[in-house]
């Protein structure tokens, strides 16, 4: 089953890279931040899959921390950094 887990992880990584390439030229700052949040959730999925495929259970903890701190970044963006419309 390991090869299959790694295949799914590879698919998610491809997903993430497509989003990254487009996010670099996204229209508004909110869209780019949503991309960062998507990276957080996709990265959590990839880490959990890697933990299973590589037999390193500690990677689940890394996934847990990533899921939490992506949310902190999103809230910091909404509360502090985002002001004015899409031109900044």
């Amino acid at each position: 089953m390991n090869g299959f887990d790694l295949a799914i992880a590879l698919f998610l990584l491809g997903n993430l890279i497509v989003a990254l390439l487009v996010a670099a030229r996204g229209p508004t700052s909110a869209d780019r931040m949503l991309m960062a949040l998507l990276f957080g959730s996709t990265g959590t999925g990839i880490l959990v899959l890697l933990a299973q495929a590589m037999h390193i259970p500690a990677l689940v903890d890394v996934a847990l921390v990533l899921a939490l701190l992506a949310a902190i970044g999103g809230v910091a963006f909404a509360k502090r950094a985002w002001q004015g419309d899409g031109h900044d």
Binding site: A36, G40, V65, L66, L68, L69, A70, I72, G73, V75, A76, F77, R80, A81
Partner: peptide, 11 residues
């Protein structure tokens, strides 16, 4: 790297 520094930079 990804969490705290990102939030601090945004702030």
């Amino acid at each position: 790297g990804a969490g705290l520094t990102g939030a601090l930079l945004l702030d």
